[in-house]
Amino acid sequence: MLIVEGLTRRFGDRIAVDDICLEVPRGSFVGVIGRSGAGKSTLLRMINRLSDPTAGRILWNGRDVTALRGRELREWRARCAMVFQQFNLSGRLDVLTNVLVGRLSQVPARRSLLRLWSAEDRAIALSALERFDIAELAPQRAEHLSGGQQQRVAIARALVQEPDIILADEPIASLDPRNTRIVMDALARINRDFGITVLCNLHALDIARSYCDRLVGLSAGRLVFDGPPDALDAAAARELYGPEADEVVDAAPCAPVALPFAVSA
């Protein structure tokens, strides 16, 4: 169980995340929704400790992870794998090595730095790649892959960490509709097959509705909605997204949209 207590993050005098409290039971698929700049990324990055909270605590199974340092911090990061919008792969390295990066916390440095991966680790990495139908890409350089393929490699990297949680930060924002499905399906399968908790930042409400079993809405850093997708009615969506609400709620990309000249961002 992941518990977030009064988590706050300030950048100068701007508050990115404002006193957020959250309880996430093991195995749930939570969508974090809201407009861009609402604090979704900062929240996820704080849970992975890529950025440190100004105030508040993060508890995992009763243990405070906000104060971890060194070896323990690296172990915590391995347990809550991160998936990024821009994939954050090492472009010039081959796919298999990129996935094996997910094993780093398990492998002694003298072996990993020389890339002396055990047959076991290689089998785990290939098994993860096979799950997403990209095992044949293993010897290729990551930068030569399409966006959808790269994101699946990133999810494979997260999976071989054998994490308890996967934090996905806008994993589909750089992808086309077909790859959006493939990547979201991959996350859903991880959640179902291995019982890994998924916390996924999403901008598109329709995707969030069809994949998540719980939605958490942020607006200007504050928690303004927390409940099952069905409970998010038009009024709640309007509060979350403001003037963008109509675009996000009925995402029908083919329908012509009358563009107003000034959309207040």
């Binding site: 195995g27 096979e130 291995f194 019982g195």
Partner: peptide
Amino acid sequence: SRSPTLRDAALAEMAAITARHPQHF
């Protein structure tokens, strides 16, 4: 009860994976 992990699954069919991707082993 814990769900099966990727590690268990991979090790269970290690021989098959090795056979499918000999170039990586």
